[in-house]
Simulated scan of single mutants.
Amino acid sequence: MARSQFLRLGDVFLSSIGVAWLFLLPALLFLTIFVFLPILYLVYLSFTTGSFSQEGVRWVGLQNYQQLLLSPDFWQVIGNTLYFTVATVLPTMVLPLLLAVGLNQGIKGRDLLRTAYFLPTMTSIVAVGLGFRWLFQTDGPVNQLVQAFGGQPIAWLSDPTWAMPVLILLSSWKQLGFNLVVFLAGLQTIPRDRYEAALLDGANAWQQFRYITLPGLRPTLVLVFVTTTIFTLRSFEQVYVVTGGGPLNTTNLLVFYIYQQAFGLFDFGYAAAAATLLLGVTLGLLWLQLRTRQDPHL
């Protein structure tokens, strides 16, 4: 009797696993066709010529990666991307955090302000890019404002010094609302009794922020850091619409560089090698986020 019950439980267990795999099968097929296989093909393509020339696809080993490491243009693009990423991630973490702390205090019109801050996230980045291009053109509203205060017009989009800050401002404005909402959600998970106990102990606002808010938001901070960094690393539309990678290649970011190599020069193997490096950085960031979720003390 006990054996029959055990066999019956085993049949139920196996049938439940079969049903689970049956429900997972469509998603797994979708991921395999549209995610895993393209990634494998990308890595394979990075070891080939990958061109549509008469020679066709030819295995070249590490030649594309060697060419990347020896290319001055590639290192300039890496420098541009690092500059753009750091200058975008820092303000889009600090400013939304401070705004979220202020909105979490229960001020009047909090829902309206939260919606207003989130609107840029829902706006098409191409439309935003066209708007910024109009604002910062030589005879645009920004230069009119500069002249109103007695300054000289600035060639924002054709000056190697000022073109990148325009892209950074655009990307920061676009990402701010998303990070604000995430920080607000994270603040809701911190128990209120911690702040009440801190008040009884005489802690001021800065001490509460340092010893309660920041430690309580550690997983949220990692999430915002990872998502914002990935957002900046994959930036393409703003470069394509606003500057086109110029002037003098100073706003050429990695994804736009990959696009130029693949669809401008049709060197798909070289572009795939650059894209594989970008994929490696992205997977490293995702690993950091998952590790932090497993161990919040990291």
Rank of each mutant, 00 (worst) to 15 (best):
V77R: 08
R110M: 02
S51T: 10
M164P: 01
P296A: 14
F266Y: 09
P91H: 02
G10S: 07
E55W: 07
Y257G: 10
R133K: 15
L24D: 02
F178E: 09
G56P: 14
L62I: 13
V128I: 15
L25S: 12
V241P: 05
F209E: 10
T229G: 11
L103I: 13
F118C: 07
Q67L: 08
A100W: 03
L97C: 05
R3L: 13
T251Y: 04
D201Y: 10
L97T: 03
A155N: 14
G177T: 07
L248K: 09
D139W: 01
M122T: 13
D201F: 14
L286C: 14
Y65A: 08
Q188L: 13
M1Q: 10
S71N: 14
A127E: 03
G102P: 00
R194K: 04
V182Q: 04
N80K: 09
W59E: 00
Y257I: 11
Q260M: 02
W156K: 01
Y41M: 15
L170Q: 07
D159G: 02
F84W: 04
Q238Y: 06
A116M: 03
W134D: 11
P96D: 15
L286R: 12
Q147F: 11
P26M: 01
Q63N: 05
E196V: 09
A272T: 04
F263R: 08
R194L: 11
V35Q: 08
Y44I: 15
Q105M: 12
V77W: 08
I33Y: 13
V182L: 15
D73S: 15
S124A: 15
V182K: 06
R192A: 09
L253C: 08
V241C: 06
V146W: 02
D267G: 00
E55M: 04
L69S: 03
L24R: 06
Q289E: 12
Q67K: 11
E55G: 12
F34P: 00
L278E: 09
L130K: 14
G18R: 04
W75A: 06
